[in-house]
């Protein structure tokens, strides 16, 4: 899918900057709780599971599979180039991420499809973490 300049871009905060820096560097970073070991996405100040304030950043393998998906034909704003695929990807580490599936026709999307992260640069600062079908699945 193409993204016009007018699509609103994320503005990294102190909390989310490690994630966005990682995306720009080609690494998918996610928070993990040092106390209970659960993953947090999107970034949080405290663990939503055990409430410990011991969240650290770890690198994800960036590999996973499609947990659920939809193909949006009527987009929320005209700048989006419909139809496009929105998916929830279950990463190998067990955490979930809402994302776009790219390089994949809507009719080829299926639950369980093996996918890998694919960073798409949309500005000097921001690369968006999309997913594409895994080549060596």
């Amino acid at each position: 899918m193409t993204r016009a300049k007018t699509i609103p871009l994320p503005r990294p905060t102190a909390l989310s900057r490690p994630h966005w820096d990682g995306c720009r560097e080609g690494v998918l970073r996610v928070q993990r709780c040092d106390a209970c070991g659960s993953y947090e996405f999107i970034p949080q100040a405290v663990c939503t599971k055990c409430q410990a304030d011991e969240l650290g950043w770890v690198e994800s393998s960036g590999r996973g599979s499609v947990y659920s998906h939809t193909t949006v034909h009527r987009p929320p704003r005209p700048e989006f180039d419909a139809p496009y695929v929105v998916a929830i990807v279950e990463l190998e580490e067990g955490w979930h991420m809402l994302t776009n599936l790219v390089d994949c026709a809507p009719e080829d999307v299926a639950i369980g499809l093996p996918v890998e992260v694919d960073f798409r640069a949309v500005s000097d600062e921001i690369s968006l973490p999309c997913f594409r079908p895994r080549r060596n699945a």
Binding site: M1, I7, P8, L9, P10, R11, P12, T13, L15, S16, H19, W20, I42, P43, S68, H69, T70, V72, R74, P75, P76, R77, F80, A82, Y84, V86, I88, L98, T99, N100, L128
Partner: peptide, 24 residues
């Protein structure tokens, strides 16, 4: 689709419509 700070769950991905949420 709002812009937003941090990582917006919705909007960024074009997933921010109610039909899409309930489709998923």
């Amino acid at each position: 689709a709002g812009g937003g700070s941090g990582i917006p769950k919705e909007g960024l991905l074009g997933s921010g419509t109610m039909p899409a949420v309930f489709a998923e």
